[in-house]
Simulated scan of single mutants.
Amino acid sequence: MDLALLRTFLTVHRAGSFTRAAALLGLSQPAVTSQIRTLERQLGRPLFVRRARGVIPTTIGDELAHRAAPHLDALVEIAEAGLDEESGVRTLHLAGPPEFLSARVLPALTPLVAQGLALRLSLLPNAGETLDGLAAGHHDLAVATARPRGGLLTATPLCDEEHVLVAGPRMAARIGPDLLRRKSGLVLEQLPVVEVHESLPFVSRYWATVFEAKPAAAATVIAPDLRAVLECAASGAGLAVLPRYLCEEALERGRLVALTDPPMPPLRTYFLVVRTGTLALPHIARAHEWLLRAAVDW
């Protein structure tokens, strides 16, 4: 059996689409369709059922994928290991939220850079865009705040981040802890808000979890980078909801004040995501393992 046909089959099985598999393989869609039909003729069984949106494997297709995937991934690992030794330097294309990559991921990967790993970053605040780019082969490894669906991508929980409702010291002093305890979210509705988007993703999640309500206020400042949101809040532009890892130093220095201390603060999970099977590649596997070890202390 032709290994190229099996490779195309496995890519289609993981992608769930001839079109997406063609993009990953660098082939035309007709070429992928032709290869799958050739393999089906050789086996005498259909491997996929065509649907309006992609394909789903038959039971024979699932069985073949289960049996073939470990061996094909092992061959890729052998081939890439040889290439790794010849080139000396491998490039990892990494994507994820700008702030998290800057504050957490890049410092953690610095030792691998010293060992010969080259990094190319795509700073993407939107999780959907990040996962789409990974699925299309634009990235090797991604950090996302959403767990992908389907078999094309494999996600591993990396860490949780706690969200904190903060304001600059002058604004916090103006509210006062007593008033805040008595009226909670009602007081905060009267204050200006700094956010990353008009939909108030961070503030809305916080309000739903802590106050069991929707925020009534509109954002006064929209800054599509949490580091800019932090600086605006610290300067007194309005209250904000920030990840604790990002604002911890500002809280310790008194540049920001935590307005509430809920028993169950909102949490958001980060996932480390790869295309299924690519952890057979040594440079991706090293970065993946390194980040999981580092995240224990995050």
Rank of each mutant, 00 (worst) to 15 (best):
A15L: 05
A15K: 02
F18M: 14
F18H: 14
R20Q: 13
A21K: 03
A21Y: 03
A23M: 06
L24V: 15
L25H: 06
L27T: 00
L27F: 03
L27A: 08
S28T: 14
S28F: 00
S28A: 13
Q29A: 09
Q29P: 06
P30A: 11
P30I: 12
A31T: 15
A31F: 00
A31V: 07
T33K: 12
S34C: 04
Q35E: 09
I36H: 02
I36K: 04
I36R: 02
R37Y: 07
L39E: 05
L39G: 05
L39V: 10
E40M: 05
E40N: 07
R41K: 13
R41A: 14
Q42P: 00
Q42S: 12
L43P: 04
R45T: 12
L47Y: 01
L47M: 07
L47P: 03
F48M: 09
V49H: 12
A52H: 12
A52S: 12
R53M: 07
R53G: 09
G54R: 01
G54I: 06
G54M: 06
I56T: 15
T58E: 12
T58F: 06
T59Q: 14
T59F: 04
T59V: 14
I60V: 14
G61N: 07
G61C: 06
G61Q: 04
L64M: 12
L64Q: 04
H66Q: 14
R67G: 08
R67M: 10
A68W: 14
A69V: 06
A69D: 13
A69F: 05
L72W: 02
L72V: 15
L72G: 04
D73A: 14
L75R: 10
L75F: 06
L75W: 09
E77L: 02
E80D: 13
A81E: 14
L83M: 09
D84L: 10
D84C: 08
E85H: 10
E86I: 11
S87E: 13
S87C: 03
G88H: 08
G88Q: 09
R90S: 15
R90A: 15
T91S: 10
T91L: 15
A95L: 09
P97K: 03
P97N: 11
P97Q: 10
P98W: 04
E99A: 10
F100H: 03
F100Y: 11
L101P: 01
S102R: 12
S102D: 12
A103W: 01
R104E: 11
R104D: 03
V105I: 15
V105A: 08
P107G: 08
P107D: 06
A108K: 06
L109E: 02
P111A: 07
L112K: 05
V113H: 02
A114T: 11
A114K: 11
A114H: 11
Q115D: 15
Q115A: 15
L117K: 05
L117Q: 08
A118H: 10
L119M: 13
R120W: 02
R120D: 11
L121Y: 00
L121S: 01
S122K: 05
S122Y: 07
L123K: 01
L123V: 07
L123N: 02
L123G: 02
L124V: 15
L124E: 15
L124Y: 04
P125T: 09
N126M: 08
N126V: 14
A127N: 00
G128R: 10
G128K: 02
G128L: 08
